[in-house]
Amino acid sequence: MGQQLGIVVLIDIPAAVESNSLAGNIWLVDNGGWDGSTGEGSPDLVCAIDVTDAQLDPGNAVLNWIPIGIGTIPINIPQTFFLYDDDRRALAQRPLPALHQGIFPVRIRNLVGDEVNIKHPGHLLKEAPRADPQMLLSAQGFVDPGTARFKRTGESRVAQPGDQDLVYYPDPAILRIHGEALDAGVIYPAQYGSPEMFSRGLYWSASVNPNLLGLYRYTIEIALYYSRRDADGRVVDDWVILSHDAWIKISTGAPRNGFPAVTLDLVSNDAGAQGA
């Protein structure tokens, strides 16, 4: 199996939520530029997939979609980054302390046999990590967001003088992939779970049918999440689902043997049966 194609879908979430449309607020980039993809960095990406080697080397091409919100925490940061301070301490601690008073000794052993002092666990952070108020992207815990910027005037309904507009937009999630490319049986997408600690561990991947050539369109439906304050001042989460079209182009070339003196019938993979 050759190179897997990764398609990064970048979205300006505040602008998309405000205009209720992805037009002008979405860009796609893939890593197939060397193989002929066009429209890199624009909304109109055509992924080029050359399936010549599907005849030589069994294994389908694989596409992966990665949705990214511009302004969200970088995806390489693990999800433990978002914990409240006391959750972080709890993770750092070993087993739960016994609830019974006086019946169990203060020093107990955990599952692997290490002694744990419940009253003074040795694994607590010595001092709480301080959140830098300037550095809003380094939210320690869920920083209470200000109002989502719905007005182009830039005025916030809830603003403290001297505050920055702390609005939190989680990474968008792809809900569904559908369209012509699926109906024609060209790509077979599915949502997979991954141990990667971003996008809540879910991502979309598709295998490509190398037998159908041509240009096919597909539609991605993306959920954009945002937080805002309602009239009572409570923070609520909301979302909007928008869709966008992109294309894949499947082409094949003329397979040849790299050694010029050898002619090889490449329909069959059994080289031993052929002659020079």
């Binding site: 040849r256 043997n257 790299g258």
Partner: peptide, 11 residues
């Protein structure tokens, strides 16, 4: 020339 399209099987 188009190494993408080459198979490397030699005798």
């Amino acid at each position: 020339v188009m190494p993408r399209w080459r198979a490397w099987t030699g005798l």
